[in-house]
Design a protein around this nucleic acid. Structure first.
Lengths: 213, 213, 213, 213
DNA sequence: TATGAATGAGACTTCATTCAT
DNA sequence: AATGAATGAAGTCTCATTCAT
């Protein structure tokens, strides 16, 4: 009864408390809409439907809140399971992956994470590094693993599978990502994405499909 | 007191006044190093070697100063003449362009413009749009024109030259740009750039080189 | 639900309830270490081993808690019985008292009460007044009584015994208290205290010992 | 003309700028009335008749402003020239000094500095140390020097002149300083001060006047 | 009675912008 | 035209206090 460990209200450890989730969700929206600097804790509190003080019960400061959202996002995006089943043929796999990847990147608010994190990377290098490692690099790895599985049986002829994976992911962006992220064009239609991904897949396979005797 | 003095225009329209250029140069450095929000007018004034008040003589506010720099930058980067002489063969041209392009993007502070503008695009959509149109889109156009010049004689077999141009530019970034911009890796060596660009060129030509009978 | 429970008094009047004592002890430590303003209710709750809410069950607010501690302290310090037995000779009595008094004042955290109360006296004059009356003034009285007991038989020749008592108490502090309380010197050694008190006693007796015919 | 050293508006070096003095004066009043913690920069700005922002043009933060006032005060109090002319006889000198010293300490707001600095000493030890060294210790030194000048010719018989000086300064406070600083009594009258100082001087000389053969 | 999550006023500080010189 | 001292709105963060459980 005589408390000792009962106190320490700071930093609620309950990682899944509903208030914590509520804050994360509210903050995600504001950070994404305005960027790190322009997002004020006041606005975040309003958006999350809690008081300013409550923000600081769950997160030590603005940076930590931002990082928590990023980790959350990494988990979330990790769950977006791309189908890299090695039994599927490369053309279908790449086409499907490319479509899903670009839909993710170009969904309203999709590229915003990349944008927002990029913006903060100069002043908070760790944040950028971690985001790259946890989200982008991991994705490259998954695709590279898939490709490697098809090099062995002779379907594909690739020297450097990580580079090839990165190349495919970049080619997919052509004419889609930059116009979208710079607001020079609205989010691309599924149809347009389809065309671009088809072209990307063709290019990739033209370069890396094993030549059969 | 003398009539002459009264005729002096209130707003300095002289686009090339040396003070104006001085401010532009000082501000560019600060904006690029710190990003829009973290760059203070104080720091900019110091970097430009003028007083804070003078800043406001030449530019209405911080946003306008930033936009002016961007336009300036567009002009500047427009001058970085990549050699798109149609007489040169595609392989050499692409290889040289790719090397120069990546060297530009990955030089210390090189990707920073893209990052900085991306960061501001949500809050100042016009700025993002204009930057994309004046710098990135224009570059795609130049490359597309070059490619088109080699489609006619049958060197290349390309359906959509703008898409192809964008694709090449994206492939060049593979494994280089994102790690650099997220500070997950130092600026790549010229050697590494060379390897990646060679691979990108091979992939591009595998897909688009005209098949000869 | 049971009638019995409903009769429980709302405000806990039980001055010696163990929770109350627990709070008082925890808060004393925090107030003394940090001063009134820097002591947060959070820290006090932690130090007392109760929840923040419980603090407000026993004390209306931070001020009232502080005042309660001061009263408590007055009682406590009143119990520090200096030996003012009139049968003992003045020299020994003064020497012993002086040593004990300075040891009390200069022990780590000893002068802190004086400091802490002084600090708050301007904003809470009653607190300062009460502390002076209950602790310091009372001590002067005790010493004055002792002196008076030795004036009657002719051991000491003192006109104003309260003034004389205050004088002795002040002289004892010379070179010890201020450096300590301003952190200009560490707590003085017992040896150093001894020297200073000896000198203080000599001075006092030189002035007030009755001249014998 | 092309500025370089012309900038750096931060931290105006002009130690005697009138704005600086204005702020110092306004802040002194607020700090003294409320203590360090309870004095808000808002209130200080109002009291000084400047905007909050201006405060930060002249002083880096609240601590620095406080320290600046302390240094200012040290200078000020250093100017309160006590007459320690070695040619004057000890009794007169001590009596006059004692009167002036206590008048200083017990003037409205006089002891407040000691109180305010004491209060902050725990959290800002340097401030306390510096105040002790620059103000109190220096004063003890002056008096000790004077005493020493009278030991040589045989007027006074003092072993440890610094201790003796400190003792006299403490004895002067008896029955005056503590009641005043704890607001247990109003500022003492000049008459009462006179009586106490006379008694203090008598005690001091009874102990330290050289015995003549 | 006891808890501790939640609150919101208010503290310190920064910075884009203005204006008298 | 140029200056830089001055401004005050707005930002981040703290903390005494309340209240549903």
């Amino acid at each position: 009864m005589v408390a000792d460990a009962l106190n320490t209200p700071r930093l609620v450890a309950d990682e899944d408390s509903s208030k914590r989730r509520q804050i994360l969700d509210g903050a995600r929206k504001v950070f994404m809409e305005l960027g790190f600097d322009a997002a004020s804790m006041n606005e975040i509190a309003r958006s999350a439907g809690v008081s300013k003080g409550t923000l600081y019960v769950y997160f030590a400061d603005k940076n930590r809140l931002f990082e928590a959202i990023l980790e959350d996002e990494a988990l979330e995006q990790g769950k977006v399971a791309f189908n890299f089943d090695p039994l599927r043929d490369p053309e279908t796999t790449l086409r499907e992956f490319g479509r899903a990847y670009m839909a993710l990147l170009c969904r309203p608010g999709g590229g915003s994470w990349i944008r927002t994190v990029m913006a903060i990377a100069e002043r908070m290098p760790d944040v950028g590094r971690r985001y790259y490692a946890n989200v982008l690099d991991k994705l490259i790895d998954h695709l590279a693993d898939y490709l490697r599985a098809h090099v062995a049986p002779g379907d594909l002829a690739i020297d450097d599978c990580r580079l090839a994976a990165a190349q495919f992911m970049e080619v997919c962006k052509a004419s889609l990502f930059l116009p979208f992220v710079f607001q020079a064009a609205p989010a691309p239609s599924a149809e347009r994405i389809g065309e671009v991904i088809d072209s990307a897949t063709r290019m990739f396979l033209a370069a890396y499909r094993a030549k059969q005797a």
